[in-house]
Design a binder for these strands. Structure first.
Lengths: 340, 340
DNA sequence: GCTGGCACTCGCACAGCAGGAGTGCCAGCC
DNA sequence: GGCTGGCACTCCTGCTGTGCGAGTGCCAGC
C-alpha cells in the first residue's frame, strides 16, 4: 500500500527534522521542508495514525510531534541508510590514530576521535583479557620472597601482579620459573589458561612445585577476574551541550552510570565486530540511561571481537552518522591492533 | 586591634555560611547564626569595610554579601584550621584502598574515593616517569626484527614500546640485550638514564652495538617524553550537582579543560608532598577554570613527590574539608606505593 | 482519500505587582 | 569613638494575568 509507504516517509521526515532542529515538528513545517506531495492536513492524518501506533508523541496538546523510542527503532531498522563518512572524516581518522605508540595511546586517541566526530560521549573498552592470548609472561624479583608477574597479551595489554612466595627464591629459580610459565602459557587464550595449570604442576620439577602453585594461583585470579575490564571515556563535555533539552532533569545520573563502568561494560559485552548495535532509550533497561541511546560495535578481526567501542548520547541523535563513525573507528582500531 | 580582629571573624563567618547555604549572606542572618557579640548594624559597617578592601562583594544592590577570590584566599591562608578527618572517614580510606592489586587499581580507587569524600571532581596523576627509577626492563621478541620493550618502574608503572630492529635478531641476542639493559639501567632514575647511554654503547659487545643503539634510542624517547604523563579523573557527575549556581553558564568549558589534561597537568607540576596547594578562581589563570578552585598535593615520600592528586570544584567549596581529604588520601597512596 | 477551512487548545513570553530581604545612613547612647 | 536601633530606600523574586502563535482535530467538499 502506497498508504503505509507514505506514513513511513512521514516518520522518517519527523525523525530527521527533530534531530536537526530539536523542536517538536508540526505538519506544516514538515510539508514545507520535505517533498511529500500531500498537504499538511493529510500529514496530520498520518501523524494521528503514527501516534496511535506509538511511533510518535506530542509533549503537550498543541505542540508538534516527537519520535518515541519505538519510532527511533523503526527509523534505525528500516528507514535509514548508513551514511558513508566524508573523505575529510576518513582522513581525520587516519591522521588522528596513526602515530599511536602503545595500546593505551591507541585507545585514548580513539576515544577522543570518536567524541570529536560524533559530538557525543565516547566509550572504548580495553581488549577483553579473556579473549586475548598470552604473548609473554615475565617474572621480576622484587625481594627475596616477592615477585612481580607481568603478563603481556597479543593485543598489547599489560597486566601486573605482585606475589609473595611461601619461601625465598633465588635468581636461578626465577629464571626456571619464567621458562616454565612461558612454555606453558604463551599462545594460549586466557580463557583456556586455567586448563593448563594441572599439567604445569605435574611437569614442574619438584623443587619448584610450591612456587609454581602460588604463582599460578595469582595468575588465574588475574586472568579469570572479568571485572578488571577497563574503559576509557571521553567527550563528557558534550553532555553539557544540548543541556536541559536532551535529558530529563540533569545529566548527573548519566555521568554517574558512565563512571560506574559496570553498566557500560554490560552493554559492551553484547557487541560483535560485524554489526553495529543500537540500543535506544528504554531498551537499555537501566534507569540512568533513560533518554539515552547507545551505539556500539566490536573491534578486532571479524571472527574475534577483542573489545567494544561506541558512543552514548540523547535518543535524539543522528543515528546514521553515529553508526558510520563508530564502525569506521572500530575498523581502524582493529587494523592497528592486528599489526602491532 | 580588636577591631580588625572582629572584621576577620565576620569574613570567616561569611565564608562558612555562604559555603554551607549557597545564599548571599546578610548582616541579620549572620548575627543570628554566629556569636559575634555585636548587632547587625555593626556587622554592616564591617561588611562595608570588607567590601571596600575587596574581600566580599554583593551580587546586586540589595542582596547579601558573597566572598571574592581574594576573600577565599584570606580565609584559606589565615582563617581556617585544617579540619581533621573523622574516624569514619579514615576508616573509609583504608577500606577503600586496601586490596588494590596494581598501580592502576590504586589510582582509580583513589580517584573514586576522593570524589566520594569531597563530592567534587577528583584528579590523580600517574607517578611521573622522570621521577621514578627503573625496576626492570624486559625485552620480548615479537618477530624476527621486532621487539617489545617493557619498562617497569619502582612505582609499579609499566610502559611499553615496540621497536623495529635494523637486522633480524635471535633468541640469544635478545637474552644478552636484556641482561645488558638491566645491568645498565636498573636502579637508575629515569631523568638520569640518558647519561648512561654512551657508557652502555661502549661496553656493549660489538655484534650487539647496532641493536643496542636502536633500542636505547626508543627507550630514551619513552623516558624523556614528559607528555606521556597520565591522569585519572573521576566524580565529574558532581559538577552537575550545584548546577547553575556554582558555575557561570555551564560546566562545559570546565569538563573540556579536564579532558584536555594538559591544563591540569600544568597545575599538578607545581605540587610537592609537604604542603597542600590551593588555587582559587582567577589564580588559575585559565579561562575555563574561572569560578573553579583547585586543591592539590603531591604524594610519595616527603623528599620525593611521585605525582600529584587533588580535587577541582567551585570556588564556593569547603576548603578545610577538601584540604584534609586530599592530604589524607595522598598520604595513604604514598604509603601504598612505597611498600609495593 | 485528499484538501482547505475553522474553531479550539495550550504553552510561552512579557508586563505588572506585591512582598521581602538587605542595605546605608543617621541620631542617640555608653 | 564606637556601637546600636530605627527608618527609608533599593532591587530581586515570585506570582498572576494576558496576548500571541503554533499546532491540532474535525468537518464538509472535491
Amino acid at each position: 500500500m502506497a498508504h503505509d509507504e507514505r506514513r513511513l516517509e512521514v516518520l522518517r521526515a519527523i525523525v530527521q527534522d527533530y534531530v536537526s532542529t530539536n523542536d517538536p515538528v508540526g505538519s506544516k513545517a514538515l510539508s514545507e521542508r520535505h517533498d511529500l506531495g500531500v498537504s499538511p492536513a493529510t500529514i496530520r492524518n498520518d501523524m494521528a495514525v503514527l501516534e496511535e501506533q506509538g511511533y510518535i508523541t506530542q509533549p503537550h496538546t498543541s505542540a508538534g510531534r516527537v519520535p518515541t523510542d519505538k519510532g527511533y527503532r523503526l527509523f534505525v531498522d528500516r528507514l535509514s541508510a548508513v551514511k558513508p563518512l566524508s573523505v575529510a572524516e576518513r582522513r581525520a581518522i587516519e591522521r588522528f590514530l596513526d602515530g599511536a605508540v602503545d595500546l593505551h595511546d591507541v585507545l585514548s586517541r580513539s576515544v577522543r576521535l570518536l567524541a570529536q566526530l560524533t559530538r557525543q560521549v565516547a566509550v572504548v573498552q580495553y581488549p577483553t583479557l579473556s579473549r586475548s592470548a598470552v604473548r609473554h609472561l615475565e617474572v621480576v624479583q622484587l625481594a627475596a620472597a616477592r615477585l612481580m608477574l607481568v603478563l603481556i597479551t597479543d593485543t598489547g595489554r599489560v597486566e601486573q601482579r605482585v606475589v609473595d612466595t611461601p619461601v625465598d627464591v633465588d635468581a636461578t629459580a626465577v629464571a626456571e620459573l619464567r621458562t616454565l610459565l612461558n612454555s606453558a602459557f604463551v599462545g594460549v587464550k586466557l580463557v583456556d589458561a586455567g586448563d593448563k595449570v594441572p599439567d604445569l604442576l605435574e611437569t614442574a620439577p619438584p623443587h619448584l612445585r610450591g612456587l609454581v602453585a602460588t604463582v599460578s594461583a595469582t595468575l588465574m585470579e588475574t586472568l579469570v577476574e572479568p571485572s578488571e575490564d577497563r574503559l576509557v571515556i571521553g567527550g563528557t563535555a558534550n553532555l553539557a551541550r544540548g543541556n536541559a533539552l536532551d535529558f530529563p532533569g540533569t545529566v548527573r545520573p548519566l555521568l554517574e552510570a558512565l563512571e560506574e563502568q559496570v553498566v557500560v561494560l554490560r552493554l559492551m559485552s553484547q557487541v560483535d565486530a560485524s554489526t553495529v548495535l543500537v540500543r535506544i532509550g528504554e531498551e537499555n533497561a537501566h534507569e540512568a540511561l533513560t533518554g539515552a541511546s547507545f551505539v556500539s560495535v566490536g573491534y578486532g578481526s571479524a571472527d574475534r571481537a577483542l573489545g567494544g567501542l561506541g558512543v552514548v548520547g540523547p535518543t535524539r541523535m543522528d543515528y546514521p552518522m553515529n553508526m558510520a563513525a563508530v564502525r569506521a573507528v572500530a575498523r581502524y582500531v582493529g587494523h592497528l591492533l592486528a599489526e602491532s
